[in-house]
Amino acid sequence: MERKQFALGDIVQMKKPHPCGTNAWKVIRMGMDIRIKCTGCEHSVMIPRLEFERKMKKVLVRAEEQPES
């Protein structure tokens, strides 16, 4: 099974959209659990790494490509 590569600060797309309608999430914490924040409503969720890897579709924007804010 191929492991998807993602890093802290990346914007990722999940398989299911958030109830607010946005499907882009920012990775804000990594470890055994991954904390992601919705880019639409700023809601954050912590999920186990294996579940996150299963539900993540792709990386939309890499952290190094984002302008500093």
Rank of each mutant, 00 (worst) to 15 (best):
E2R: 01
E2I: 13
R3T: 13
R3I: 12
R3G: 11
K4F: 07
K4A: 09
Q5W: 05
Q5F: 11
F6N: 00
F6I: 01
A7S: 15
A7P: 03
L8F: 09
L8S: 02
L8W: 03
G9H: 04
G9V: 05
G9R: 02
D10N: 06
Q13L: 13
Q13R: 15
Q13D: 06
Q13T: 13
M14I: 04
M14L: 15
M14A: 07
K15R: 11
K15F: 03
K16R: 15
K16L: 10
K16V: 12
K16A: 11
P17S: 14
P17L: 10
P17G: 03
P17W: 07
H18N: 08
H18L: 08
H18T: 08
P19T: 08
C20Y: 13
C20D: 13
C20M: 08
G21C: 09
T22D: 11
N23K: 10
N23R: 12
A24F: 07
A24E: 12
A24L: 11
W25Q: 02
K26H: 05
V27A: 12
V27K: 02
I28K: 09
R29H: 13
M30L: 15
M30P: 03
M30F: 07
G31K: 11
G31F: 13
M32P: 08
M32W: 09
R35W: 04
R35C: 11
R35Q: 11
I36D: 03
K37R: 15
K37V: 14
C38E: 05
C38G: 06
C38N: 12
C38W: 07
G40D: 09
C41D: 06
C41N: 06
C41L: 04
C41R: 04
C41Y: 05
C41V: 03
E42S: 13
E42Q: 10
H43I: 04
H43T: 10
S44T: 06
S44D: 12
S44K: 05
V45N: 09
V45R: 09
V45T: 14
M46G: 04
I47C: 06
I47P: 00
P48R: 08
L50G: 01
L50C: 00
L50P: 00
E51H: 13
E53F: 02
E53R: 12
E53H: 05
R54S: 05
R54D: 07
R54M: 03
K55D: 15
K55F: 10
K55L: 15
K55R: 15
K55E: 14
M56I: 15
M56Y: 06
M56E: 01
M56G: 00
M56S: 02
M56N: 05
M56H: 01
K57H: 14
K57G: 12
K57M: 07
K58G: 05
K58N: 11
V59K: 00
V59H: 00
V59G: 01
L60G: 03
L60N: 02
L60W: 07
L60T: 09
V61P: 01
V61A: 05
